[in-house]
């Protein structure tokens, strides 16, 4: 038994956790910014897919991975702006719009991909991001190779967590975001533009979703396939709730989910297939649903979530 544990818990395993957690951390932070401003973005699943596609396409035509990342981020911002246009400017119902954005962007991703690359028996791939060991730090035993010998996008995700917490809790803009998410009427009275702040938060969220998509198609799989996102957007929705709309907790939730996912992959590989791997994949969703029931007593969700704001209406 201990041999099995040794096989499972090794440096490669820790590195795998970090890699699995990276796109989830980006997506979760993105969704969190949007929701903290009061806008549920169910478009996340489709936005990530479209960004993975545009990023991959830009990278494979330009030969520059960073141009690909830029394309993915811009796509995410554009789709965020679209979702905000519907839900913030027009005040349409957020959940139905989100499903609309997901259907639209995933359809568009498939359509454009097929148009650009045609139907090929072997899907085109690119030479994706290579690991970038950080001098000195990567020499730390165990932790070094696991955390500091990763893709550049992984470091960006690690830095994004404290940055997101700083922006949300320590900057005037972050305060505005929290205000328009909790009490838009009060924010409006205090001179904060609810519409503008929500737009900015949803667009920032879209940019982060773009990074998540970029990571999937340019660092993890190095190709765009129709299953490249496969529910990771929905996982992010769950992780935001599970992480109580807080950057640290949400990122922690992403790490926890990545741990379970990595464990599941290892157990499958090592032939310990007594438990179906789907049981592990189900866990974050079940945990979140249970957590929602438990947390419901001390309402931690942004109070104005799902509520459109129209100044003239009371």
């Amino acid at each position: 038994m201990s041999a099995v544990f040794e096989q499972i818990f090794q440096v490669g395993f820790l590195a795998a956790i970090i890699r699995i957690a990276t796109p989830l951390a980006f997506a979760t932070l993105g969704e969190m910014f949007s929701e903290r401003a009061g806008v549920l973005n169910l478009g996340i699943e489709g936005i990530m897919l479209l960004c993975a596609m545009t990023g991959f396409t830009a990278a494979s035509f330009s030969g520059s991975l960073w141009l690909g990342v830029l394309a993915a981020v811009l796509t995410g911002m554009l789709m965020g702006a679209l979702h905000a246009l519907f839900t913030v400017a027009l005040g349409l119902s957020q959940h139905v719009c989100g499903i609309g954005v997901t259907l639209f962007s995933s359809g568009l991703a498939y359509f454009l991909y097929r148009l650009i690359f045609g139907q090929q028996s072997v899907p085109p791939s690119i030479k994706g991001f290579q690991t970038l060991p950080i001098p000195v730090l990567s020499d730390i035993p165990v932790l070094g190779p696991a955390v500091f010998n990763q893709f550049a996008l992984v470091y960006m995700a690690i830095l994004a967590i404290p940055l997101a917490a700083f922006v949300l809790y320590r900057t005037p803009w972050g305060l505005s975001v929290r205000m328009v998410g909790e009490n838009p009427r009060a924010a409006d009275s205090a001179g904060v533009s609810v519409i503008a702040t929500r737009f900015q938060a949803v667009i920032l969220g879209g940019a982060l979703m773009g990074l998540a998509g970029a990571f999937l198609s340019m660092a993890q799989f190095n190709a765009f396939t129709f299953g490249v996102v496969s529910g990771r957007g929905w996982v992010a929705i769950a992780l935001v709730v599970f992480g109580r709309w807080d950057p640290w907790r949400s990122a922690g939730a992403a790490l926890l989910f990545a741990f379970v996912d990595a464990l599941q992959l290892r157990m499958q590989a090592s032939g310990l297939g007594h438990i179906p791997y789907e049981a592990f994949l189900m866990l974050p969703f079940i945990f979140t649903i249970v957590a929602m029931a438990v947390m419901s007593r001390n309402a931690v969700a942004p109070s104005a979530l799902l509520k459109p704001f129209r100044r003239e209406e009371r």
Binding site: L40, W234, M282, F285, T288, I289, M292, L306
Partner: peptide, 9 residues
């Protein structure tokens, strides 16, 4: 909204 969506997965 969220609970019914997550149940799909």
């Amino acid at each position: 909204v969220v609970s019914s969506l997550l149940l799909n997965s």
